[in-house]
């Protein structure tokens, strides 16, 4: 019974995603809303992404150095840091951070709109709530996740440089040469593909949980919004990690 309920929710979420994607292109008026959401999902996440990126790169630099030095291969630190970030940590950590910052906010905002009749008000004004509320968020997430991931990767590589080169004394030329010689377009493609998929997952799960807050059986009103927000974050993170494994296993 529980399995059926999960499958049914996944099916509903997929239809919700299709509905949201189709409605991105319904009107030129969507553009303004998409830009507004890009500001919220993208620009406002830059600081936290940069902060997490620099420290992730610095930790990778430290850990990588002390592992590689055992094999006399510390010159490969640049490649280790860059490949880890571009193929794996960049997309995953960006998705998890944006889930915490923007995904939870999407679920809560739409959930509050649901319980305060604002979504019903849109419907009776003949404004499609999915087109008005959800589609711009989908479009913005699809655009912003790869861009934020790119920022994360670059700042992470700089973080690795700070510990590996500035702190531990690796030759800066070697650091960048190893990056250049080991990272190929396939790695970058894999990273961006993951970022794109994670953007779709986070936006879909977060908007879906908020939109159907009133259907929840584990709480109504503010408690329902709170549970919807928690579900959005937990489910997004779990789906991101599962998708990461599946995509990695196919693309390796």
């Amino acid at each position: 019974m529980r399995t059926l309920a999960v499958l049914s929710e996944m099916g509903a979420m997929f239809l919700f995603l299709l509905h949201g994607l189709v409605n991105i292109f319904t009107s030129t008026k969507q553009l303004r809303k998409i830009v507004h959401q890009m500001y919220f999902i993208g620009s406002k996440s830059l600081l936290v992404i940069s902060l997490i990126g620099i420290f992730t790169g610095m930790v990778l630099g430290l850990q990588g150095y002390y592992t590689l030095v055992k094999f006399g291969s510390e010159g490969l630190l640049g490649a280790a840091v860059a490949l880890s970030l571009i193929r794996e940590l960049g997309p995953v950590l960006t998705a998890i951070m944006v889930t915490g910052r923007a995904g939870s906010s999407m679920a809560a905002e739409i959930g509050v709109m649901r319980i305060s009749d604002q979504i019903d008000a849109l419907e009776v004004m003949d404004i499609n709530p999915i087109s008005y509320l959800v589609s711009p968020r989908f479009a913005a997430a699809i655009i912003c996740f790869p861009l934020l991931t790119a920022v994360f990767d670059v700042i992470g590589i700089i973080g690795g440089y700070l510990t590996g080169v500035a702190l531990l004394g690796i030759n800066p030329g070697i650091y960048f040469y190893r990056i250049e010689s080991s990272v190929n377009s396939h790695d970058i493609y894999e990273g961006f593909l993951k970022a794109l998929l994670f953007g779709v997952i986070v936006a879909t799960v977060s908007c879906f949980q908020g939109y159907y807050t009133h259907m929840r059986k584990d709480g109504v009103g503010p408690e329902g919004v709170s549970n919807a927000t928690t579900s959005a974050v937990v489910m997004s993170c779990v789906l991101v990690l599962i998708t990461d494994y599946i995509v990695t296993s196919f693309l390796l």
Binding site: S116, Q118, D120, A121, L122, V124, M125, D126, I127
Partner: peptide
């Protein structure tokens, strides 16, 4: 139909002017 909901159901992210204008700007 025009509908006045119990608490107004105004969109919290829009100003009063934008709320009132919404049906016109959307349609």
């Amino acid at each position: 139909m025009g509908v006045l909901f119990q608490d107004g159901a105004l969109l919290g992210s829009l100003t009063l002017g934008q709320n009132v204008a919404l049906p016109l700007t959307e349609h």
